[in-house]
Simulated assay, not measured.
Amino acid sequence: MDWFSQLISNKLLLSGFAAWVAAQILKTIVHAIVNRKIDWPRLIGDGGMPSSHSATVTAVAASSGLYYGLGSFQFGVTVILAFIVMHDAMGVRKETGKHAIILNDIVEFIDSMGRNVSPEEKLKEFVGHSPLQVIAGAALGIIVAFVVRF
């Protein structure tokens, strides 16, 4: 069981997981306030405010800086990874969501012409993030890293 105690005492892993959980809970609350109803699948869903991807990778990067120093290999690797993930969330994943909206409209049009389309065929539209959502997620990740550390 030594591996398990090592796993649960890993502060970088703990920071990343705690940031993800916090972001998912906040995302569900924000979505409920904006839409005036609770959408439980938001607890594990993609997209929304704040970005859980950004929160997770930023928490890991900030924690690596706090534990190993800003000049460490660990900090360098995690910061680069964080930038890649956050850029992807705003770029490729955001565009994927836009494409899904258009394709779903096309499928809905085809469906209106008599072809029955099952709900499983509908693409997920809520997958990317705006810059504000990414920044909010990054700020949350930094806060969580400091809370876990101190």
Rank of each mutant, 00 (worst) to 15 (best):
D2P: 00
D2W: 03
W3G: 10
S5Y: 10
Q6H: 12
Q6N: 15
L7T: 06
L7K: 06
S9N: 15
L14T: 10
S15W: 08
G16M: 03
A19M: 01
W20Q: 03
V21P: 00
A22P: 01
A22T: 03
A23L: 00
I25T: 06
I25Y: 08
K27P: 04
H31E: 11
A32L: 07
A32G: 08
A32W: 05
I33G: 06
R36Y: 05
R36P: 08
K37E: 14
I38M: 11
D39H: 11
P41D: 04
R42H: 04
R42N: 10
L43G: 00
G45A: 15
D46K: 02
G47Q: 01
G48H: 03
M49Y: 10
S52Y: 07
S54A: 14
S54W: 03
A55D: 01
T56R: 06
V57C: 12
V57I: 10
A59W: 03
A61H: 01
S63Y: 01
G65K: 02
G65H: 06
Y67D: 13
G69P: 05
G71R: 09
Q74Y: 12
G76N: 08
V77L: 12
V79Y: 08
V79F: 10
I80Y: 12
L81M: 14
L81V: 13
L81G: 12
A82E: 08
F83T: 06
I84Y: 11
I84T: 09
I84S: 12
V85Y: 08
V85K: 04
V85T: 01
M86K: 00
H87D: 10
M90D: 10
M90H: 13
G91D: 08
V92A: 14
V92R: 11
E95Q: 14
T96N: 09
T96A: 15
T96M: 14
K98P: 02
K98A: 14
K98E: 15
H99N: 14
H99P: 07
H99K: 14
H99G: 12
I101T: 09
I102F: 15
I102S: 13
L103W: 05
V107K: 13
E108Y: 10
E108R: 15
I110K: 05
I110A: 12
D111I: 00
D111E: 15
D111F: 04
M113K: 14
R115I: 13
R115D: 12
N116A: 15
N116L: 10
P119Y: 11
E120L: 12
E121P: 03
E121V: 05
L123F: 15
L123Y: 10
K124M: 15
E125D: 07
F126S: 14
F126D: 15
G128R: 04
G128F: 06
G128C: 13
P131D: 07
P131Y: 08
L132Q: 14
Q133W: 06
V134F: 04
V134N: 04
V134Q: 01
I135E: 03
I135T: 09
A136P: 07
G137H: 05
A138Y: 00
A138T: 02
A139G: 10
L140H: 01
L140P: 02
L140R: 03
G141I: 02
I142G: 00
V144E: 00
V144R: 04
V147F: 07
V147D: 02
F150Y: 12
